[in-house]
Every structure is written in structure tokens, then in C-alpha cells.
């Protein structure tokens, strides 16, 4: 059944902008992105919105719907009441380009700072052999679609612009955890996790996990295990001494100096 829904959509650029009111037809089974497209087609042809797959797999249409970070293509209209005013804004952690489109280059800068996967030097690509139990932890993190909603919601950068230089956000700490847990990786990333990517800024408030559209347990399976691995090396004197006498030595080499930007 079709009904008219009330929307407030943020329109503007990096200089100015405000929430503008619209009334748009909504049909059964539609998602918020459908409505934004209808708005473009009927009332606001210059409305800027980034989107691609419309299937929750490309991570392009991240925005904030009624104040919560959401993928617009995965936010069904039937989760709202028919008389509810629905507010759509761009992600509020990144600089806005226009309307619902933000500049997410902060994330790409941080991505380049993560030391790349480093298999043993004498291992040919066709010779990679890993047991399933050894890789499945890392595989969970490979579900990430890089929508950057976790970095958007993390208060360490959302509420503190100055921390963007020293903190990479949950997305890239998860990437570091993924590589640190990888059975074939030969690099010890614990030092760079703290010194270059700001692991210590994370205070476990789990908002990254709450907003993840892929339902990755970012905090429990990536950030906390990474914090514990760092504690092994940096904060636990008993473990450090015990590891000197351990039969299975940690032969990984420290991560190389992080390229900045």
C-alpha cells in the first residue's frame, strides 16, 4: 500500500546547509534508498547521494537515518511508522562534500598505513597451506564491506577531530588484528597497533559492533583480542619473562616503519 511519508533530508555543502522537508510516496517493500531515488526523480534532481549495489554489499550508501548510522539500502521503510518524520543526514564524522555525500579519504589514508600481509619469503603463492581452524578467525573480518560506519560512529574520532591523526578507528584496527591472527603472516603488528594506529584510544564501548551491517563482532573478536595480544607484549612482565623460556618462540619480525599518509 502506498502512503506519503515525511522526510527531513540534509542539503548543503562544507560551508552551509540545513535539513529540508519533503513528502514522498512510499510503496510496500521499499528501503530508504528507494525513497531517496524517488526524491531525486520527482522533487530534488540535484540531491547528491553515493550508492552502487543496492544490496548491502558495496558499502557506498552509508548515512545516518534518524541519527543512527545505517546503510540506506538495507534500512527498510516498514521499520518506521507511517506518521514518523524520517531524518536523513550524511555521516557526521567525515567532511561533507555535498548533501549526503561525504569525503571518506581519512579511511584510505589509514588503510595505506597498515603493513601489508607478509607471508614467509620462501613460500611460493601456490604453496599456501592453512588449516581451516587457523584461518576462520581472520575470515570473519574479511566480510567487511568498508562502509566505514564503524569509524563514523566511533566517538574517539567522531567527537574529537584532533584524534584523526593518531587513531585509525575500528575498521583498520580490525584489519591489523586480522593480519596479526593470520597463520602465514610473519610480521608482529602489536607495536604499530598501539603507536601508529592508536589502539589505546579504544574504550570498548562497542558502537562499532552495534552498527556493523555485516554483523562482525568487531569489539569482541578483533579489538579486545588485539588489546590482549598487546598486553602480552607490552604490559605483562610475567608473560614476557615466561615467553623467553617457551618452547614455541615468536619468530615474527616487528612491522616496518609505518608510511605516513
Amino acid at each position: 500500500m502506498t502512503y506519503k511519508a515525511k522526510f527531513r533530508v540534509w542539503r548543503g555543502d562544507d560551508e552551509s546547509g540545513d535539513l529540508q522537508n519533503y513528502e514522498v510516496d512510499v510503496n510496500e517493500g521499499e528501503v530508504v534508498l528507494d525513497i531517496v531515488h524517488r526524491l531525486q526523480a520527482t522533487q530534488a534532481p540535484d540531491l547528491a547521494v553515493r550508492w552502487n549495489c543496492k544490496a548491502g554489499k558495496c558499502g557506498s550508501c552509508s548515512a545516518e537515518v534518524n541519527g543512527k548510522p545505517r546503510l540506506m539500502c538495507m534500512t527498510r521503510m516498514n521499520t518506521f511508522t507511517e506518521d514518523e518524520v524520517i531524518t536523513i543526514t550524511p555521516m557526521r564524522t567525515f567532511p561533507v562534500i555535498r548533501d549526503l555525500v561525504t569525503d571518506v579519504s581519512y579511511n584510505y589514508t589509514k588503510a595505506r598505513m597498515v603493513p601489508a600481509f607478509a607471508p614467509p619469503a620462501d613460500l611460493e603463492p601456490g604453496d599456501y597451506r592453512m588449516a581451516q581452524v587457523d584461518v576462520e578467525r581472520s575470515q570473519e573480518f574479511r566480510k567487511c564491506i568498508e562502509c566505514f560506519m564503524c569509524n563514523n560512529v566511533c566517538h574517539a574520532v567522531r567527537d574529537h577531530e584532533e584524534n584523526k591523526t593518531t587513531f585509525s578507528g575500528p575498521r583498520f584496527l580490525m584489519r591489523i588484528a586480522e593480519l596479526d591472527m593470520h597463520p602465514l603472516d610473519t610480521v608482529d603488528r602489536r607495536k604499530v597497533a598501539v603507536d601508529d594506529h592508536g589502539l589505546g584510544y579504544c574504550n570498548i564501548t562497542k558502537c562499532c559492533t552495534e552498527v556493523c551491517p555485516e554483523h562482525i563482532h568487531i569489539t569482541d573478536n578483533a579489538l579486545i583480542p588485539l588489546k590482549e595480544r598487546v598486553a602480552d607484549k607490552r604490559y605483562d612482565p610475567i608473560f614476557s619473562i615466561a615467553s623467553l623460556f617457551s618452547r614455541s618462540k615468536d619468530t615474527r619480525t616487528p612491522a616496518p616503519e609505518t608510511p605516513k599518509g
Binding site: 540534509w10 548543503g12 562544507d14 552551509s16 546547509g17 540545513d18 535539513l19 545516518e64 534518524n66 541519527g67 543512527k68 531524518t87 543526514t89 550524511p90 557526521r92 564524522t93 567525515f94 567532511p95 561533507v96 561525504t102 567522531r158 567527537d159 574529537h160 577531530e161 584532533e162
Partner: peptide, 17 residues
């Protein structure tokens, strides 16, 4: 500062939840 930093979308409310 924070969500009201220059360059970000100009929205007065601290949250729209």
C-alpha cells in the same frame, strides 16, 4: 569541535536519534 568541526555537515543537534 567534534561533530561540529569545520567541514562536517552543519547540524546543530548533538544527536538526531
Amino acid at each position: 569541535t567534534g561533530i561540529h568541526s569545520p567541514g562536517r555537515a552543519k547540524i546543530d543537534a548533538d544527536t538526531l536519534r
